[in-house]
C-alpha cells in the first residue's frame, strides 16, 4: 500500500547570528544552510500493518510522514501510496488517507466537534447512512458522545485527541499516518487510544505508520519498527529482532550478603564489563552476551553473593542507545535499499 524508494528531503534554512548586530547584518546578507532532513529512505508497508517509526527529535520522522501524506514535496526519490504519488494531491488519494498529528490540532478550535464532523462529511462526500453509522460506532468506542457539542478548545487534551482520531477515521481511510497520537496524554488516555487503534485495525485493516516517543505505544501497537537517525533509515524489521541485533550486552546483578564485608572488585572483575552500580547491597555489571557465563562464575567466586540475576536490557534502553548513536549499527543490519515486493 505504501512504497517508498530512496526518498530524500533537504530544507534550506536561513542562519542568523545572535544579538542585535547579527539581526542588523541579516538585513543585508543572509546565510543559507541546507539541512538534509531525510536521506534516501526506502520502505514498504502492507495492508493491516501497523509500523512504528522511531527516531530522536529532528531525526526526520515527521518530514517523512508529511511527504507520504502529500503535504510536502521531496527533493529526490519516489513514493506511491495506494498507487498515487502523494504530493500530486489527487482527490482520489486524499479521499483514502488520514493524518493525525498529536502536536497540531487538525480540527477547528472554535467549533463544537459535531460541527467539525458535519463539515468533514461534506468534504469527504460521505453518504448520510454511512456517516451516521461510522459516527455512532466511533463515538461509542471512544466514549465521547457527551462531548460532541462542546467547542474543541474547551475539551481536555485526551478528549481532543479522541475527537481528532474520530475525525480522521470518519471516512474509513485505507492508510493512516499517526504522528505522536498519545503525546501529553495521561496513562489512562494513552491506553484508551492504543486499544482503539488496535480495534480499528482489526476491523478495517488499514496500513498505519505511527511515530511515538513512548515505547509503550510502540511495543503495544507495532510488530514492525523503522528506526530513523539523522534522516537515515538504520533499521527496518521486527521489534523482537531489534533486541537480538542490538542488545549485545546483558546485565548481571549480584545481591550481597548483609553479614559479610563488601570486598573491593578485582581488576579482572572490572575488566569483564562496565560496572553500573556498586554499594553495600548489590553489584551490577553490564557484560557482552558471550561473556555472561564466565562473568557470572567470576562474580560468584569473588563476591559474597546472596543471589544473582541476569537481565536483558529493556527495549527502551536499547533503542535509546541506537538513537543516541551509542550502539553501533552493523553494516549487515542496514535495511535493503530496495523495498520488499508487495
Amino acid at each position: 500500500m505504501i512504497q517508498v524508494h530512496k526518498l530524500s528531503k533537504a530544507f534550506t534554512v536561513h542562519k542568523k547570528d545572535p544579538g542585535l548586530l547579527g539581526s542588523v547584518r541579516s538585513l543585508f546578507r543572509r546565510e543559507q544552510v541546507v539541512k538534509q532532513a531525510v536521506r534516501e529512505v526506502s520502505l514498504s508497508i502492507e495492508e493491516g500493518e501497523i509500523v512504528g517509526l522511531i527516531g530522536a527529535n529532528g531525526a526526520g520522522k515527521t518530514t517523512l510522514i508529511k511527504m507520504l501524506a502529500g503535504i510536502i514535496v521531496p527533493s529526490a526519490g519516489e513514493a506511491t501510496v495506494l498507487g498515487h504519488v502523494p504530493w500530486k494531491r489527487d482527490d482520489r488519494f486524499r479521499q483514502q488517507i488520514a493524518l493525525i498529528m498529536g502536536q497540531k490540532a487538525q480540527l477547528w478550535w472554535d467549533l463544537p466537534a459535531a460541527d467539525c464532523f458535519l463539515l468533514l462529511k461534506e468534504i469527504y462526500r460521505l453518504p448520510e447512512a454511512q456517516y451516521r453509522e461510522t459516527l455512532d460506532y466511533l463515538t461509542e468506542v471512544l466514549g465521547v458522545r457527551e462531548q460532541l457539542n462542546i467547542q474543541i478548545r474547551r475539551l481536555s487534551l485526551g478528549e481532543r485527541m479522541k475527537m481528532e482520531l474520530l475525525a480522521a477515521l470518519l471516512h474509513s481511510p485505507r492508510v493512516v499516518f499517526l504522528d505522536e497520537p498519545t503525546i501529553g496524554l495521561d496513562l489512562t488516555a494513552q491506553r484508551a487510544i492504543r486499544e482503539f487503534i488496535l480495534q480499528y485495525r482489526e476491523q478495517h485493516r488499514p496500513a498505519m505508520l505511527v511515530t511515538s516517543h513512548y515505547m509503550e505505544d510502540i511495543q503495544r501497537l507495532c510488530e514492525r519498527i523503522l528506526i530513523i537517525r539523522e534522516g537515515e533509515l538504520i533499521y527496518d524489521g521486527s521489534l523482537r529482532q531489534v533486541m537480538e541485533k542490538f542488545a549485545t550486552h546483558k546485565r548481571i546483578t549480584v545481591h550481597l550478603r548483609p553479614d559479610k564485608p563488601v570486598p573491593e572488585l578485582s581488576a579482572e572483575l572490572r575488566a569483564l564489563g562496565e560496572v553500573l552500580q556498586r554499594d553495600a547491597e548489590l553489584v551490577k555489571v553490564e557484560v557482552p552476551r558471550a561473556d555472561v557465563p564466565a562473568a557470572s562464575a567470576k562474580l560468584l567466586q569473588e563476591l559474597p553473593a546472596a543471589d544473582l540475576v541476569i537481565d536483558e536490557l529493556d527495549i527502551g534502553t536499547v533503542i535509546e542507545r541506537i538513537l543516541s548513536q551509542r550502539a553501533e549499527v552493523p553494516a549487515s543490519e542496514l535495511p535493503a535499499s530496495e523495498p520488499s515486493a508487495s
Partner: peptide
C-alpha cells in the same frame, strides 16, 4: 481572523487543507 492564509502557512494550519480532498 484567526486562521488567515498567512497564519495557516506560518503555523502549519495549511497541512489539514492539503490533506483534505477539497
Amino acid at each position: 481572523f484567526e486562521g488567515g492564509v498567512s497564519t495557516d502557512i506560518y503555523e502549519g494550519g495549511l497541512n489539514r487543507y492539503l490533506v483534505f480532498p477539497a
